[in-house]
């Protein structure tokens, strides 16, 4: 009986197809990805059955942290943030910003310092700014700076949708104050950012 010889096969695999797939996926992810700006506060939003999605631009966001600090953020579509800062320094001539500070304002995400401290905050190095714990924007009736931010933010981007992103545990009086500020500025329609929760009515239908 002759020995059965196993034919020696090459171990090289044609990688072209795999490579195609890999790069196809790569392009997809590169196109769809959007880098998040750094958020200085971690907020755990409550859940609701609402399924309305938020757009990514034209958003004026007020964040309320669990300890009741208020933060302000606006996206930089069509240089909104540049204009916002210009308006702020127009309104408050004592607040003038250098080009470096202006750039820092555009690049930084959430703002949570009183106007008086804004210049100092923007003057910090980037790393220091990330580490700095912001005291929050004052919303007291005597010194309501949030109202100024909202007013100027709306003037800088009239199409902006106004959203509140509150932590589950943040005290209601603070939210109430923020909502009152909105009403004072004639913002009567706004969105609350929530997590998704299953609708019990839909569960019944299943």
């Amino acid at each position: 009986m002759p020995k059965v010889k196993v034919a020696r096969k090459s171990t090289a695999i044609d990688m072209t197809a795999m490579c195609d797939v890999a790069f196809l996926l790569l392009t997809f992810f590169m196109m769809t990805t959007e880098f998040r700006g750094d958020e200085s506060v971690i907020v755990d939003t409550p859940s609701s059955i609402s399924e309305i999605k938020l757009p990514e631009t034209d958003i004026l966001n007020v964040t309320i942290s669990s300890d009741g600090k208020v933060f302000f953020n606006i996206d930089n579509k069509n240089f909104t943030r540049e204009r916002l800062l210009e308006r702020i320094s127009e309104k408050y001539p004592e607040l003038q910003f250098t080009p470096e500070e202006e750039r820092a304002f555009v690049l930084t995400g959430t703002i949570g310092v009183p106007l008086a401290e804004l210049k100092g905050y923007l003057g910090l190095e980037e790393n220091e700014r990330k580490m700095y714990s912001q005291p929050g924007i004052p919303v007291d009736s005597t010194n309501n700076e949030l109202g100024i931010w909202i007013m100027q933010g709306r003037l800088s981007n009239p199409n902006a949708r106004i959203t509140i992103k509150g932590d589950q545990a943040c005290p209601w009086p603070v939210v109430k104050k923020v909502m009152d500020t909105f009403q004072d500025k004639n913002v009567n329609k706004f969105n609350l950012i929530t997590d998704l929760e299953l609708d019990p009515n839909k569960l019944k239908g299943l």
Partner: peptide, 22 residues
């Protein structure tokens, strides 16, 4: 791919709309 997959965020936040009276 792994890098972009891990950094990407698909879930846009949900919102609830509120209308307050004038």
């Amino acid at each position: 791919i792994t890098f972009f997959m891990l950094t990407t965020t698909f879930s846009k936040p949900q919102t609830m709309e509120i209308n307050l009276p004038v």
